[in-house]
Amino acid sequence: MLVKLSVNGEKHEANVEPRLLLVHMIREVLRLTGTHIGCDTTHCGACTILVDGQPVKSCTMFAVQAQGKQLMTVEGLEQNGKLHPLQEGFMAEHGLQCGYCTPGMLMTSYAFLKKHPKPSEDDIRWAISGNLCRCTGYVNIVKAVQHAAAAISQGGA
């Protein structure tokens, strides 16, 4: 089946089996390997991307369902050589260790901050509760999101 979609503002099309999972289309057909896979049961969120602005688990969607949609992956965060404040925040606050969960965390937080520019710590913890991290204990991920929220409110993005 022919699927046409846009990823990070670029148009793509590919002929795929209907059963192709969206995450495999992104990683293996489009070769955007920043989006990861960490489970089979829709629990880890390593595969989180935005579909029409909403963060979703791309391992639990078929590529054909993304027909005509606007997708955004971690590779789309940096704009014109400028890192997104979340990316800066994750580096500044040591919000990542092995980096495997990081793209998913970034995408979830990106959508979250758009809706909740001034979140509390608890808001952030609930917002990222569909994304597992085994390395950081979440403390610094929360700080990284706060860091980004502050930067954005000061006109950082």
């Binding site: 990316q87 495997y100 970034l106």
Partner: peptide, 21 residues
């Protein structure tokens, strides 16, 4: 100091085994 490995990870440019094709 900030970590030297982070710039690739926050861009989704790490290379994990499943990324090798």
């Amino acid at each position: 100091i900030k970590r030297k490995e982070d710039p690739r990870f926050i861009r989704g440019k790490g290379t994990y085994v499943d990324d090798v094709q």
